[in-house]
């Protein structure tokens, strides 16, 4: 009888994922109903209710708008520069040596530690926050693009030189697509990091946005709004990640066909 169940699960693996999440949520809800947790921990149903109420009051829309603008602007600037410099460093020894030491020193610093230093210059402003987000998004994009470019068969580039293609064309039409599978991995990490830094930079200084909302709810002791905000951050992260995953699947559709070429 389990053979039948096995084959059903193999064809629909999402049953397992959703089933597990459902069990965790149900246990959590049950625990709050039984008052096993202190009062400030809300059950999932209460959190969703809180979230819907915030949404209807209209405060969530503004927060989400402000936060997403920061996160996505920072992500676009940081990862865009990261990909271009990473690919350049991957094909040019000079570029690689140029960035290597600087990169190695700045990379291990938790970027949030630079927040006060940048704030001295620019104040606790949007520019400071976007700068910190961009700086954090830069590294995963840079390192993965670099490794992607290093892994490109040099003869692919030779094919371009053989045809007399200009460097810019070789960069965009050969190097970029050839290192795309690896570059996309970097972009997805960069996006996640951007969301983390979005919240981290918003809780400090007088800001608006989801992070600031969370902090205010904490200070005022309205835990319902705090959890509603956390849920909103999670939903933004999941949806952005899904959008990026969809775009990369389209760009990398060729990869799914017939597997990888020999050599």
């Amino acid at each position: 009888m389990f053979g039948n169940l096995n084959s059903v699960l193999r064809e629909r693996p999402w049953i397992i994922s959703i089933g597990f999440a459902g069990v965790v949520l149900a246990l959590w809800q049950y625990a709050t109903i039984q008052s096993w947790f202190p009062d400030y921990i809300l059950g999932p149903i209460n959190i969703v209710a809180e979230f819907v109420a915030m949404f209807h009051r209209g405060e969530l829309g503004d927060q989400v708008g402000a936060s997403l603008r920061r996160a996505l602007t920072g992500f676009a600037i940081g990862s865009g520069i990261g990909v271009v410099l990473g690919l350049l460093a991957g094909v040019s020894r000079v570029f690689r040596d140029l960035f290597d030491l600087t990169q190695a020193f700045i990379h291990p610093i938790p970027k949030i530690a630079l927040f006060p230093a940048i704030a001295v210059l620019l104040g606790f402003t949007d520019q400071t926050r976007i700068f910190i987000i961009a700086l954090s998004a830069f590294f995963p994009a840079y390192l993965n693009a670099l490794n992607g470019a290093l892994g490109v068969d040099p003869r692919m580039i030779w094919v371009g030189q053989n045809a007399g293609a200009a460097r810019v064309r070789i960069f965009f039409q050969i190097l970029l697509p050839a290192s795309l599978p690896r570059t996309v991995v970097g972009l997805r990490i960069s996006l996640m990091v951007s969301f983390i830094m979005m919240v981290a930079t918003e809780v400090v200084g007088h800001s608006n946005g989801l992070g600031a909302g969370l902090m205010r709810a904490y200070e005022e002791g309205v835990y319902g709004e705090m959890y509603g905000g956390i849920l909103a951050v999670a939903i933004c992260g999941v949806l952005s990640n899904a959008a990026l995953a969809m775009i990369s699947r389209r760009l990398l559709a060729w990869q799914a066909i017939g597997g990888v070429q020999r050599g």
Binding site: R155, W158, P177, A178, L180, W254, Q255, Q261, R262
Partner: peptide
């Protein structure tokens, strides 16, 4: 001078 390599080095994305 057109080069043909051992493994075809075609662009797999095209």
């Amino acid at each position: 001078r057109g080069m043909v390599f051992q493994d075809a080095t075609l662009f797999p994305w095209r």
